[in-house]
Design a protein around this nucleic acid. Structure first.
Lengths: 240, 240, 240, 240
DNA sequence: AATGAATGAGTCTTCATTCAT
DNA sequence: TATGAATGAAGACTCATTCAT
């Protein structure tokens, strides 16, 4: 289901002798180099030569591990996806505390463990290449995006069920809430990288959370009905 | 200052013979075709041949109007930026009503006039190519991003001054607030275009606005102090 | 006999109204511009665009007078050849004086009227393009080179017959004698034109004539037999 | 000073495995093929494809050794210059005999070792391309032409000092004396190559030498003053 | 397993040539 | 007659891919 055409690049985490360790590490070194360059220049503009140099091997060596440039791209995504999934699973196992805190932790942790790492380039990469690699995009969507969405949706539902959050269309709200965090990661690998600095990430995230939790308005005039049905409530008329 | 090398692509809408009309319209036709393909495939993966076919001209014709593929890219951004600036200027001239309504209008109008049009692809394009075209990125940043930011910041400040919005670090908040709208446009030209549908844009924006205005929490415990210092919220009851 | 394929570019020297004068002058203006650029850059490296600009017309106009770039080249050679032939015919009609003076005049006049003018570029041009335009080369050879050779040969024979010059294989000697003059013209359009100055032309020619007439040696030990049969005489052993 | 950008084409004739031998020989094979075609068609009219075929490699291989067509041209000149310099140095080391014989040897050897070989095409090539490659022309001038000139000048001076040659402006005379030899090489690669045969080289050179040494005139009337002032000669009788 | 020389299909770019006006 | 916009075949150059070592 969630496997691209060729999953033969899967990393088998067996316990082999030390001498083999290096050999086994090779593919990961290659995909790491490829990821960095794909994120920087885009898939088409990245030369295999550069990747090889970046990884400290010869160009021919790439073909010992990957059938083609396309296959390398797929492997890059695949390898990048795995740790994200691991991190996601690890999370939310048994969190005690308010849903607001949970939400806050979720975002901060994502930023620290994913967004602010090399993997933070994946969203930019997939955004740029999804139309050129629809199958990979589908895989990424299913394996990462959808899972991430569900995760946030669960947090939202948790808050709603606990009477902490207002009733909301969780599917929509989840996307809206994650967008600023995604943009932070995207920015870091685009504008940011060419001298146009973004806001301070920590403060940015803090603002995002505060805004999301409390909203802009000082005086709220919220109806008890769920948001989905409140057509005109968004621009609620204040008493003035 | 904020103009790339050649700004001579200005379209003077004089009343000339039909054949001249065509000649003058050519560059715009070419950049339109180029924009569509650059957004779809990325700069490097787009062949000039395809652009030419898309525009209904021969390959050589492109070189009558643009010195190189790079120059064409720059022109695409430049041409795309102009209408956005025009729309921005036109906006916020004299709006009567609450700042919340103003904010809502701003986003809806941007979506209808920019995000949901061909120009909506520009953010995706610039995100993907900024590191390959730093000067163009700088121009785009200055001419579009910064102006857009300031616009939102002004709306926020307007609301704060009127006692409608809570005091906020407007610079941060502006970026946070625009991120979901940007992501909507980005999504439309990436995942969306390869079958992975996003949420319904209208509903998505509505949720975003509702969330931004009222926040997630049912019970707000907001201190009168600026947002940056509000750490542990979520327990006490708002006056209502 | 001495016509290239298409001789339809021949200039008809009729006496037409002034308004036509311009029209008639066109081809000559075009070939003049072409000659200058062909000599400067070579045939292949010269763009018709440049020629048109140089001649102050549009590119399309060239095709009103010449069928193709090749045809233009042929016309350039043809036009260049005519005045040279005229000058040659005019010369040597009835010269009174020593053959040495005649030879001297021949060379000086050629330099002044041909070598040192725009036409002086023809040798360089033909040398560079002869293998790409064998027919043109053949025409040029027959119409110019061979006639020039014969001219010099006649001067030599005149001197020999008058007992002024030693008996020599006139065919060989003619070529040898004209080589330095040709090199002077060639140099002027190659090295000379890029800052590497040749010797002063006048002094150079003077040296050439003196050398040709009197030779290097102080003490000559010439046998009365013609040069062709004097195998070892060139390195005549001086008594010492 | 007199080296173009890259002089790293030096061929180190070490004793390496066969495959390495080939790798090292490649650049020379490529420049050899390029020289042949550049001389034949000129730089602009020669296609890299043809050079590749001529050298028995693929088009891409050329780019393994040379950055561009221009770089290949430079290398061709550079490689061609080296053996000429070597031959020149080797020459005139310790020659015993008359200066006339020395001059004769110089010309014959040049013809046999340079003019009549592939390298004989260099003059034609440089004449045709000097204005398109001024820096290369400057290098060629300094490294080859100027050195050749000096060589001949030294021979002339040697003869003058020994009382064998008349006092002459050696700089002028050297150029004049070498011109016919150069023309012989130029001719061989231009007219000659398209069916218009030149004179027999050996006989041509012999005539050149005889003429240069003894002059045309039977009766010399040479004043003891330097050649530059001998205007009207040809009447009085030499002592014998 | 690793290399890097060699390949050639693919892309950008140029420019001789055409043609509607 | 003259123009210059448009064309497309041709050529320089790149780079993913192969393969002998």
């Amino acid at each position: 289901m969630s496997s691209i055409e060729s999953l033969d690049v899967s990393a088998e985490h067996s316990v082999e002798p030390i001498r083999q360790r290096r050999k086994e590490a090779r593919p990961a070194e290659l995909t790491a180099a490829a990821l960095a360059l794909f994120v920087e220049k885009g898939f088409a503009a990245t030369r295999l030569d550069d990747i090889a140099v970046h990884a400290g091997v010869s160009k021919g060596t790439l073909y010992l591990y990957f059938d083609s440039k396309d296959a390398l791209f797929k492997a890059v995504i695949q390898e990048g996806v795995v740790p994200v999934l691991d991190a996601a699973d690890e999370f939310m196992a048994d969190f005690e505390g308010s849903s607001a805190e949970l939400m806050q932790n979720l975002m901060l942790v994502w930023w620290q463990r994913v967004g602010n790492t090399t993997l933070g380039g994946l969203p930019k990469l997939m955004i740029g290449e999804s139309r050129n690699f629809p199958e990979v995009a589908a895989y990424y969507h299913e394996a990462v995006i959808e899972r991430g969405r569900v995760l946030i949706q669960r947090v939202l539902q948790r808050g709603i069920d606990a009477g902490e959050f207002r009733p909301l269309p969780v599917e929509m709200a989840a996307d809206v809430l994650f967008a600023p965090v995604l943009m932070l990661a995207i920015w870091r690998h685009s504008m940011d990288a060419c001298g146009i600095a973004a806001r301070d990430p920590e403060a940015y995230l803090k603002t995002h959370l505060a805004l999301s939790l409390d909203g802009l308005l000082i005086e709220h005039n919220l109806p008890p009905t769920p948001l989905a049905s409140t057509k005109k409530s968004g621009t609620s008329v204040k008493k003035k």
